[in-house]
Amino acid sequence: MKTKLREILATAIDVDSDELTDVSSPDNTPEWDSFAHMTMVAAMEEEFKIALTLDEVKSMQTLPIIEEVISQKL
C-alpha cells in the first residue's frame, strides 16, 4: 500500500520515488505544486476507486497523512 502510494505520488509530481520520504510535503518539495497536487488526487481517486472530499484533499500534505486518509476509504 505504502509503496503504491509512493509510486503514484512520484508519478503525479514527476520525481523519482526514492526522493520521497515521510516528511516530504508541498513546502519542501518544489515539484509538488498545486497542479501536481491535483494530478495526485485524480490519480489516487482513479487507482483506488474512491472519491476524496474537499477537506481531505486539502489535508493530504505528507505521505503518512495520505496513507491514513486513503486507508480509511478502503
Binding site: I8, T11, A12, D14, T39, A42, A43, E46, E47
Partner: peptide, 8 residues
Amino acid sequence: SSIMGARI
C-alpha cells in the same frame, strides 16, 4: 486513458 496511463 487515465492520468497514470497517460503519464506512463
